[in-house]
């Protein structure tokens, strides 16, 4: 059952990620990113990360992606032009990526200390426990994020405002 669910949602997720790369229209890429995020939320549920799954849907798939789609429509970003092949990134980046991917798979397969596999929800992370940690052990980090949000607000105001003063 677990394997079936993982393959189902993992497949949708991977398919969405590949589709993001294939699509030529920006809006289609954005929509497939939402598919990725939604199926990831279900995968989080499989791992028992209840709170994270909910936040993933509300913040990521909801708020952030809505912002993206809004900007895409606002700027009327239509089809993307054909990429030119003169990029250094393509010469070194793609082979590097393949090499990195092979190393990564090897490393991840190496790293399985006496693995028995996990049941659905092997670690249960409900909102109250996560919240308790957030306001105790991670209190300072939580407070500091407010500075980050302030900066982001100011940045959006400064950069996107029209005209001088």
């Amino acid at each position: 059952m677990h394997l079936f669910l993982f393959l189902l949602f993992g497949g949708i997720c991977a398919g969405g990620a590949v589709n993001l790369l294939i699509q030529r229209k920006t809006i289609n890429s954005a929509l497939s990113l939402i598919v990725v995020m939604g199926s990831l939320a279900l995968i989080y549920l499989l791992l028992g990360a209840e709170f994270v799954a909910v936040v993933q849907v509300i913040i990521y798939a909801g708020a952030i992606m809505v912002l993206y789609i809004f900007v895409i429509m606002l700027l009327n970003a239509g089809e993307e032009e054909q990429a030119k092949g003169s990029n250094v990134a393509k010469i070194f980046g793609i082979p590097g990526l393949f090499a990195g991917g092979i190393i990564g798979i090897w490393v991840l397969l190496q790293h399985r200390p006496a693995e028995q596999g996990v049941k659905i929800g092997a670690l249960y992370g409900p909102a109250d426990q996560v919240g308790w940690m957030l306001f105790n052990k991670y209190l300072l980090a939580f407070e500091v994020t407010s500075i980050l949000v302030l900066i982001a607000i100011m940045g959006a105001v400064v950069l996107a405002r029209r005209g001088n003063n």
Binding site: A141, V144, L148, A152, G155
Partner: peptide
């Protein structure tokens, strides 16, 4: 000395730098 805090601090410093770099908007 905690990676969570290091990450957030790093982002605060980076994001403010991104904005400041574009401050001559016109």
């Amino acid at each position: 000395v905690e990676l969570v805090l290091i990450f957030i601090a790093l982002e605060i410093s980076s994001i403010s730098s991104y904005i400041l770099a574009g401050f001559r908007r016109h």
